[in-house]
Each structure stands twice: as C-alpha cells, then as structure tokens.
Design a protein around this nucleic acid. Sequence first.
DNA 1: CTTCCATTAATGTATATACATAATTGAGTC
DNA 2: GACTCAATTATGTATATACATTAATGGAAG
Lengths: 234, 234
Amino acid sequence: MTESGAIHARIRRDIEARIMSGEWAPGTRIPYEHQLMATYGCSRMTVNRALRMLMEAGLIESRRRAGTFVSHPRVQRAALEIPDIRDEVAGQGESYRLDLDRREIRVASEEDKRLLQIDGGSVLALECRHHAGGRAYALERRLINLAAVPEAAEVDFAVEPPGSWLLSHVPWTEAEHRITAFNAGGKELVALGISAGAACMALERWTWRGEERITYARQVYPGDRYALVARFRP
Amino acid sequence: MTESGAIHARIRRDIEARIMSGEWAPGTRIPYEHQLMATYGCSRMTVNRALRMLMEAGLIESRRRAGTFVSHPRVQRAALEIPDIRDEVAGQGESYRLDLDRREIRVASEEDKRLLQIDGGSVLALECRHHAGGRAYALERRLINLAAVPEAAEVDFAVEPPGSWLLSHVPWTEAEHRITAFNAGGKELVALGISAGAACMALERWTWRGEERITYARQVYPGDRYALVARFRP
DNA sequence: CTTCCATTAATGTATATACATAATTGAGTC
DNA sequence: GACTCAATTATGTATATACATTAATGGAAG
C-alpha cells in the first residue's frame, strides 16, 4: 500500500483508504489484530495504536471477542468552520480596519444578564465595525463577562478585534451559534451603508468555559456582499 | 485528582483540567514524561499515550528535547454543525414531510458541469421542499454525480430525503459550505409562501470524496422562520 | 429444545526495554 | 564574542510480554 512514515501511520492510512473507497463497507469486520500484525510484520501494540486512532476518528468500532468493524450508521453531520473576521479579510488579500464605536464597562443590564446568563457583576460592552478594503464588512456588538475574563478590561480593542483576542487568549469548552437572515432596519443602514429592507445575515455566538458564559457576540453582514464560506474535513 | 478508569484516562483528565482551569496557561511547559511517570507510578508508554491523545485534541504540543507545552489556542476556530433537515425537524418535535417536485436523470448541462466540476457524464437533479408541521420549511435543489454514486439512481427520494440518504450511505472526505442572505424573488415566493423581498438564507454545500465531487445542494430557508443553530465542543 | 456454564478467543490496558530522532546545551576552537 | 561540533536529553516509535475483561461458542445438564 502506502510507503512513507511510521508503521502505525501506514496501517491507519491503508485501512482508512479501504473504508473510504467502499471496499470495506459499513458493518464489515476488519482483520483481527493478530492478522494485521502478521500482514505488516509488526507487534500488536503498533496495530492497536493504529486502530485506536481510527476509533477516535469514529471510522471503526470494536467489540471484545468479536472483532473490529467499520462503523456504519454514522450520523455524520457536516460542520462549518467559522473564521475569525480579521483572518478572513486578510485571507482575501484585502486590507483590514476596525472602528471601535463604543466601549463601556457597566453593571449588567437585564438584557446583559439574559444573554450571558449571569445574576449580576460587570460586563464589557463593545460595538465595532469591521472594514475590508475600505468598505464596511460587518457590524459587531459584543458582551464580555468580566467575572470570567477580568483581563479583558485592560485590552485595547481598537487595535485587536475582540473576537481575535478572545479566540487566542481564552480557552473555551463550548460554543453555540445561531445564524439568521433578516431585512435591514434602522441601525444597520448607516453603519453598513445599505438600503432599507436589504437582506442581511446575523451570526450570533455564545461561548462557554465550563458552566460559565464568557462572551456573546452578534455580527451583522450585508447579504449582497458577504458569504460565509468554509471547507471542512470530518 | 480523579479516580475512575484507566491510568492513561486519569492522566489525560488531570492535565486537561489544569489547562482548562487556566492553572497551566498557554505556553507553559508541562512536566516531562519521566516526571509524570513518577507522579502516577506508571510506565512511560502509559504517560505517552495520555499525552498523544491530548496532542491529537490540539491541547498540547511537544518539541523533542525541549518538552511538552500547552498550545496557544490560536488554531482554534469555532465550528458550526450543520444538521440534517429531517433530524432537525424531528428534534423540534414537529412532523416532517418531503415533497419531491422534480426528479431527472440527465446528461450534465453546462451549469451541472460547473457545480460538480465534471466534464460530462450524467447527473441526478432533484428539487424538493421540506415541511415541518405542515408549513414549508426549506426549498432544496440538489445535483448528484452519478459517476461517483451510481446507486443513487435507484433510490426513492420521495421517501428518504436526499441529504439524509447521502450522509448515511456515502462516505465523504471534504465539504465546502457557503451561507448567504438574499431577498426572495420569483421562485421562492410560491414554494415557501413568503412575500417578495423577504430575507432568506441560502445554504450551499459541495461534497467531495477524494478528488471527486459527489453532490451539490442549495437549500433556501425563510429568514423569519428559520435560524441555523448549533452547539459545538472543540 | 432450552438453560447454564466453562472454555476460548478477541480486544483493553499496562510494563520494561530499546533504539531513533531532533534540538538544546555546553565545551572547545578560532 | 562568534562559530563548530559533540554530548546530552526529551520525545517518537516499536517490541515482546503479561494479565484483565468481555462476549461468542459449544458442550453438559435439565
């Protein structure tokens, strides 16, 4: 089969290829570890390591005594990577600019409490516009829970976009996204330079660390200028 | 620290907890394998196994001779899971219904060739509407490359939605998504029962197996009724 | 034929050991 | 001080071995 690299990597690739090509269909029993050992002339630990990686990837599953099988009713869900806005603009070869329109540290309002699921404490509220090549690209409103990320109060978000800073400084364990389409109203018209009723895309994101909500963001993009695009490998 | 299960799992959990809590910040060198060996009273292979899993998860990275370090989470990009429409409707406790408006096997047109990146051959073209609780939920147009998935020609897509069938029968290696917002025009008005100019969301998806494109789909959702929502754990 | 149970064969985990590989360290040289 | 190069050291891979765990198997008992 393949040639390069470590034995376990080769075993892994060979099996993966046979599954992807359809040669080993879902439900098929793949060779026992002993057989693979003989085939590749290596120890069982090495075979086992290759199989374990494939298991973690969800390609196969095994039952003691019975053997290892190609997993079949894989509820494969496609996934979309949501890029960091600054990276995205840079990736398109455009110049990036950030306008910080508002920055406020305040005691959490009722809406803040609802969005961040907190009882009180202070939040950092930001409003900014992202520009690509001089044109308005996106409008962003963000709340940061200062109880969870106190160091955010010291950061100059006129220089580093809040999303970029948070992604690279704060480990998160869970996120929820919500994408909607709506007809532009008052606020967006001026900020994005679009006409009333134009279709816009709103991307909302809540981010958790453990049980605690770290941040809420709502980004609005003009529909005629923007497409959320992403490649994904399962 | 923790108690249950295999030693490697315990080591893994302990380290993960210290990283997530912030005790070991990005860039911190974690103990050498020899030290962890001593701490847990186990062999180096066992420590190594725990560390390898954390590496695959992207939490740590290691450099020979230097040691193993907590990763800077810069590579972390949020991701959005795109659910299967039928599952999504079922998950909301609504009844699901599919209307297959058009099914055609044809020699690839110029547009088909462009969307599927093929030179010729035949394609299966489908147009359908997904309903939730009796109301129109989404409009779908789909192309399937019959050279890649010949068995699709035999499937009754009036019973099983094409997306569901493909997800569970055809292994794919890569997908590209594109989400846009636009103002509804001719076609959508009747099919979705919305008024002219209403904001809609379009979700396009291309799916590959290796170098070959398997399918193209474009789903249109009414903006006022639909939000693409997903939770994600890195 | 069915139930029960011991056998057996597969995976799961862990160990002790070995050598390979890469990069830092530090000694020796210019 | 700057450069070279060998020693050192931590990770990377692989082996041979051992025992634990689980469940399919097949034979004995009812």
